[in-house]
């Protein structure tokens, strides 16, 4: 009947929050404890220089591989969200095609060291200078700034899990066939997020701050697409033959 505001009990919201938190922890690629243990491992200057002196296409390929690995975990996360696999196959693909990289950027704050402005990459913590060979300094700076601002919100794992699910279940993506179903699922996830924020006694404005992050994520992803197009215009064969097939499928 077009009503997208489901009546959901507290018990249902608790259940939804628990399932999404569990899905997140099962698919988060690295546990916080693992990352903390590695946090002292920064790239040495000669290692930084070795990344900087890589040919542009080699560094692009390396980053495409790392992004693809992270996206595979996001696909597993999506599959475990209650209701996701009940959506039609078209809409599952639409949501992952549009949202998987956004969730990778959200998850990046777990792997980010705000004090040193470094992110876990290829075995150690890397600053923006490590990615110089990509030729996308402005995008890299924006990605690091985004991670830093996400970190400043100090989200717990359950809050991060629910926000990731909220981002993934965006009902305003183009080409959805059963928009109403996605809207209901996103609404339920937002209520579960709100419920958890209240339970965790978080500040009142946090949900709004998180909503603002959605447009920042979209901007980062469209800039990634632009940079990829520019790269492909110069190196069409490299993308065609050396980039991971899933990456090409999602961003090609």
């Amino acid at each position: 009947n077009g009503d997208t505001s489901p009546t959901v009990s507290m018990a249902e919201l608790d259940h939804q929050a628990q399932i999404i938190s569990k899905s997140h922890l099962e698919t988060c690629q690295y546990l916080r404890e693992e990352l903390q243990q590695m946090s002292w491992q920064n790239f040495l200057q000669d290692e930084v220089e070795s990344y900087q002196s890589k040919p542009r296409e080699v560094m692009w390929q390396l980053c495409a591989v790392k992004i693809t690995e992270a996206i595979q975990y996001v696909v597993e996360f999506a599959k475990r969200i209650d209701g996701f696999m009940d959506l039609c196959q078209n809409d599952q693909i639409v949501l992952l095609k549009a949202g998987s990289l956004e969730v990778v950027f959200v998850r990046m704050c777990r792997m980010f060291d705000s004090q040193n402005n470094t992110v876990y990459f290829d075995g150690k913590f890397a600053g923006p200078d490590v990615f110089k060979a990509l030729g996308c300094d402005d995008l890299i700076t924006s990605v690091f700034d985004f991670a830093k601002s996400m970190c400043s919100l100090h989200l717990s794992e359950d809050e991060l899990a629910l926000f990731s699910a909220f981002v993934l279940l965006s009902a305003d993506r183009s080409w959805l066939q059963e928009k109403l179903q996605v809207e209901k699922l996103q609404q339920k996830t937002q209520l579960a997020l709100q419920h958890v924020l209240q339970k965790n006694q978080r500040e009142d404005g946090l949900l709004n701050k998180l909503r603002c992050k959605v447009s920042a994520l979209r901007s980062l992803c469209s800039r990634h697409t632009e940079k990829l197009s520019a790269f492909r215009a110069v190196y069409p064969d490299i993308v065609g033959t050396h980039f991971p097939p899933l990456y090409k499928e999602l961003f090609g």
Binding site: K79, Q89, N90, I93, L96, K97, P245, E249
Partner: peptide
């Protein structure tokens, strides 16, 4: 869309481990 996203479709079909 399914035809253009065979790998993603396959990943979605694989059972969760």
């Amino acid at each position: 869309l399914k035809e253009k996203h065979k790998i993603l479709h396959q990943l979605l079909q694989n059972s969760t481990s």
